[in-house]
Design a protein around this nucleic acid. Sequence first.
DNA 1: TTAGGGTTAG
Length: 540
Amino acid sequence: MSSILYSCLRRHQQGSACFQLLSHLQSLNIAQLHFDAHNNNNSNPSCSPHIELQRLLVEKSKSGFDNLADALAVFDKMLKSQPLPHDFHFNQLLTALVRMKHYNVVVSLFRDMCSLCVPIDVISFNIVINCCCHSNRIDFAFALLAGIFKRGFVPDVFTYTTLIRGLCCQHKSAEARVMFTNLVKFKEFEPNVVSYSTMINGLCKTGHTDMAVWLFRFMEKSECKPNTVTYSTIIDSLCKLGLVEDALKLHSEMIEKGVLPNGWTYASIIQVLCKLKRWEEVDRLLKQMINDMKVSPDVHIFTILVDAYSRSGKLDDAKRIIEIMNERGECPDTVTYSALIQAYCSQGQTDGALAVLNTIKSKKMKPNCYTYNILLDAYCRELKLDIAMDLYRNMACEGLLPTVETHNILLHGLCQLGISKEALTFFYKIQDQGHKLDIVIYRTLLDGLCKNQYVDKALSLFHLMRCNGLIPDKDTHNIIIRGCLRNKKYNEACKLMDKMVDCGFLADAFTTSLLQHLVLSEVQDPTLLAMHQKCLQSGM
DNA sequence: TTAGGGTTAG
């Protein structure tokens, strides 16, 4: 094993829980080797008594179990079988659980398997490593890599690709890159197209598209050529960076090289073209996708279109897309309907939006918090707080936990309506209920209180922020300073401005212009003049 | 039997 791998292992084996697992695996090592020898003599699948179990596992590893209890019951049955089923079958069970996204259960079962000397192989390890990565436990994943070595197994391309993906998901693409490079350098693994694509995606998602493009070009010159996923990954990153011409160029390049774009490729490009309102090109690409590439637009692409039309105020076009989807038998999902709700709301048609919400429910689909937030925002803008509050209560009835955005929308609505006392009561209620309060919530409430002549309440709240673990930022300082200025609390405003400057923030354009207005229009106040002078001197 | 890319938000 190369030194780089040792250093990766060391770095990721620092959690105590991780050490426990590692020592657990090490202690089982000798027993396992004995078991493997024993099992190899006794696990001939052809004379296995569990044909029915095997048939079930083949089916469930593809479709998944109906529920977790069923899967666990099968696992239990397998443990009680004599002789024990082959590692292949245990892996099938673990795979079925991975498909159901029960990652922690897989890790737990794997531990049981180790304790009970159930046969495991490098594939079992790979499955569990993948689960650790999905559960953001990269430390466990590396402990398991150590387990592979301890058992005398050899990590394969799946093992390393999974670990590289795990590191990238933890925003550790630099470590992933070093690991990738050194593994290749020391001939520990030969990356395939999935490994390259994984590394390229990790670099793209962590803001290193330039490096990703370099690796992509390197790959092109190697034996392992980029495929549709590799091209789509780079194209998506270029689109997200606004480098649409480069993305379109690469799209043409892939077609020339015979690598066919798929729905994912088109989704990225269509989305950026929609954002840029290059509608003719959107139409051209949609036609090319459907007619030339024979790629049917899926719910994802349709949702991008509904969202784009919604943002451009094209409600009729958004509705037309839903009709097309229904004609083609492509079911809009909650996200598609949320985009449609947004389209109605942005045209001031809240009743239409509410009808869409009811459509979602009538189709036995579950609206999510985002869906509700869009509607709540629209009703708050119309100052129909009673309807907004009804919807908020509906969320709770439907078992939806409101987000910090939900509360911010409602607080903003209450303040806009001029009922800041109610806003304050609502704020304390959500605080008592243990909901998350962020700086935006404070900004909204402080602004609302100041604008409704409750500046003293605002000042107490501002001073309480730190007690609640929130450090006032530049915007929050400016809001409270403007509130004091508007309410003629010039001394307080002056003190707060000094404090703000001490924190390293400057007055923003709104504050300086208000200050200038007051200096020009009010009776000459020495504090105001001093503040204005400070602003001028510091270049605010 | 194991690894890769996407949509909604104040």
